[in-house]
């Protein structure tokens, strides 16, 4: 069953900027959807459209069958949202903020406090729970926002750069948490991020945006095979026979384009049989980053 459906969703801002252009995306339960793209691609705009903060100029979207332009308050009970502009109260402490948002979602003070303390613990903010938000650092605020978005145990999370401004350790921690929420609790996650290395670790599917358009979509495997049909291996060897399709890239270093892993033993055998010596063989799989750059560049080149 599709939990999120975007149907030629488009948004043109009053100034005339077409920020989102005919998006069609479907998300299923428990997916972690990595929504990628350069600055100004339209990611935040999409998140706001999906939560009813903006009204689409064309097309529509449904989340749990709810149209956010019609019943946003019903939708909000089911979703947790973190965006850059959704801040909390400076004059309240960490836990006071969480208790407030908990009660706005209809939880009792006691229950909000219990959940709040638990979330603070998981996000390593326990020491700062009684400090005013005004004394929080950027990364601490960011983590408190994530705690806030989880207080009512939403079924879907919209996270717009939830780890920008976090140190590597906290970012790792937050990503692990997001992955576990999806895996163990079946929460669907819509994650906008620029941190491709982490995205590659936790996302089950990706959408790549550029200039408001979705230029590629699919699992890591889909994307990779569409961009790099084959793979590369790197070799460090002496006495490589010249009939092998190796490209010399340095002293004793070679690069070979192959179709799949199955080709590796054959190449190794050929070198050994020809009396060569192998010091190192590694398969070079393109990372999400490689794919991202290839896709965004390809697009630029074709325009």
């Amino acid at each position: 069953m599709n939990i999120v459906t975007l149907n030629s969703l488009s948004k043109t801002y009053p100034g005339g900027k077409k920020a989102v252009d005919s998006l069609n995306i479907n998300l299923e339960k428990g997916e972690v959807f990595g929504f990628l793209g350069p600055n100004g691609a339209g990611k935040t705009t999409t998140v706001k459209l999906l939560n009813g903060m903006l009204s689409p100029t064309e097309g529509s979207c449904r989340i749990f069958g709810i149209d956010p332009t019609i019943a946003p308050e019903k939708l909000h009970a089911l979703v947790g949202v973190v965006t850059e502009h959704a801040q909390m109260y400076q004059n309240l402490t960490g836990i006071q903020n969480l208790v407030f948002y908990g009660s706005v979602f209809g939880l009792s003070t006691k229950e909000s406090e219990k959940r709040g303390l638990d979330l603070l613990e998981r996000l390593e903010l326990s020491d700062a729970r009684d400090k005013k938000l005004s004394s929080y650092s950027t990364g601490m605020r960011q983590r408190l926002s994530l705690a806030r978005s989880l207080i009512h145990r939403p079924q879907i999370l919209f996270l717009d750069e939830p780890t920008s401004g976090l140190d590597p350790e906290s970012a790792q921690n937050v990503h692990t948490m997001i992955r576990n929420l999806a895996k163990d609790h079946g929460i669907t996650v819509f994650l906008c991020t620029h941190q491709l290395r982490y995205a590659q670790e936790i996302c089950t599917r990706y959408g790549l945006m550029e200039n408001g358009r979705l230029i590629a979509e699919g699992t890591f495997h889909n994307l990779r095979s569409s961009v790099y049909p084959g793979m590369k291996i790197k070799l460090k060897a002496q006495g490589v026979p010249s009939d092998l399709p190796c490209r010399k890239i340095g002293n004793l270093a070679y690069e070979v384009e192959i179709e799949s892993e199955k080709d590796i033993p054959q190449i190794v055998r050929k070198i050994v049989e020809a009396g060569g010596e192998i010091y190192h063989v590694s398969a070079e799989l393109p990372t999400l980053e490689d794919i991202y750059f290839t896709l965004t560049r390809k697009k630029e080149g074709s325009i």
Binding site: M53, V81, M88, F105, R148
Partner: peptide
């Protein structure tokens, strides 16, 4: 904090 409040039910 308005946007946060608007994300409420």
């Amino acid at each position: 904090t308005l946007e946060t409040l608007l994300y409420s039910p």
